[in-house]
Write a protein that binds this DNA or RNA. Sequence first.
DNA 1: AATTCATAAATTGTATACAATAATGTTTAA
DNA 2: TTAAACATTATTGTATACAATTTATGAATT
Lengths: 219, 219
Amino acid sequence: MEKNSEDFIYHKLKNAIIKGYIKQGTKLVETALAKQMEVSRTPIRGAIRRLTYEGFAIYEANKGACVIKPTLEEIQETFFVRQQLEKTAARLATENISPEQISKLETYCSEEIRTFEDRDLDEYYRINDAIHLLIAHASGNKVMARYIEELLNRTKIYLILYDPFQTMRFNPSIDEHQNLLDALKARDPAAAEKSMDIHLESAYKGMDIQVLPEDYISL
Amino acid sequence: MEKNSEDFIYHKLKNAIIKGYIKQGTKLVETALAKQMEVSRTPIRGAIRRLTYEGFAIYEANKGACVIKPTLEEIQETFFVRQQLEKTAARLATENISPEQISKLETYCSEEIRTFEDRDLDEYYRINDAIHLLIAHASGNKVMARYIEELLNRTKIYLILYDPFQTMRFNPSIDEHQNLLDALKARDPAAAEKSMDIHLESAYKGMDIQVLPEDYISL
DNA sequence: AATTCATAAATTGTATACAATAATGTTTAA
DNA sequence: TTAAACATTATTGTATACAATTTATGAATT
């Protein structure tokens, strides 16, 4: 449910970037988007600004915004930061996670298996995100959860930008999620931290990172 | 050097919030600020939006923005996240810090002593920030450095909101910075991480956190 | 043919007008 | 007197007009 025009535009643009409908590095020209979306420049500017803050675009004063073109270095660095915070969250979660949250995690894990068998990629990613966010919140640290959410979103762009065919060929993280769940149930901080670390390592390694040709168009 | 009107307003408002000229919870009314600052609502809206993203204000759709009123819990949580990232940065910096950066750190440390003796609080904070940012960058991870910078800014608001008389009565972190510098020079990851951890712990503890009366005005 | 410069076009930044929503105050009914 | 309904005001959201800046174009120069 969109609050207003700007919010609507924001979601539309974000989706277009994530799905690859707008190519990396493309300039986001306000007037063109305004005409296309049949609104004025005002909500377009707001949406672009928001995308900029969230790392989907870069902005240069008096020049405008472009869709990000993440470098391999930037991707590695972002994954590393995410890994640091999620490891800590997993450790803290062993102390704070509630029985309700644990049972919710269990349902997520079984849903995840189903979505993988059905090759329902969108749904698979959605559940994967839900698992990570649940653990982030179970840490009890709301500020950290917010940062993890932001980092999760950014790494999601990378995943899709650099795995454009989304083959779902990788060995999914189902076993790893199960290990994590076991560690949380056992309330074993070291094991939880380790599981999360390994999991994010393999998520990163599973990405088929390669610099795409300049004129590559995913759709 | 401000890029444009919005940027100017942003810095002005941020300073007013950090210095406590604008009280916690105060509504930021666009028209009023526009009249006061002698510009239109457009750059005001942009500046407010930016402050919102950076956590200096909260926003409610169709209702507008208010200056944050951080709770004790939120302050603790933010310090904790900062501590996690800065510990890691210090550890990584032992591998990547350059001789130039080390010598710069040394000059910062001596300047810091001078500013403390002169009771020049603004300058003292500026150098303290510079030290932390330098180490963040010396980690070699630019993404992490950006997050640390953001967290540094946020904890700075807390410092001033909750230590409004800015008496500089605390035992300054000069010794702790020296320890950190020594660990970096020795390229000892464990020692660097530990020094940073201790340092941020004492910075947090040094804050005289107390919920101020509702109608408190610092200036 | 390449470079420089001036001009024109395109694009972003700001101001202002109007629309939509929220907050406030006033009247009316029970 | 209180509460609901309405009208009024204030404030935010959007559209549009204009200003400032950047980019594109093309002629003049070497």
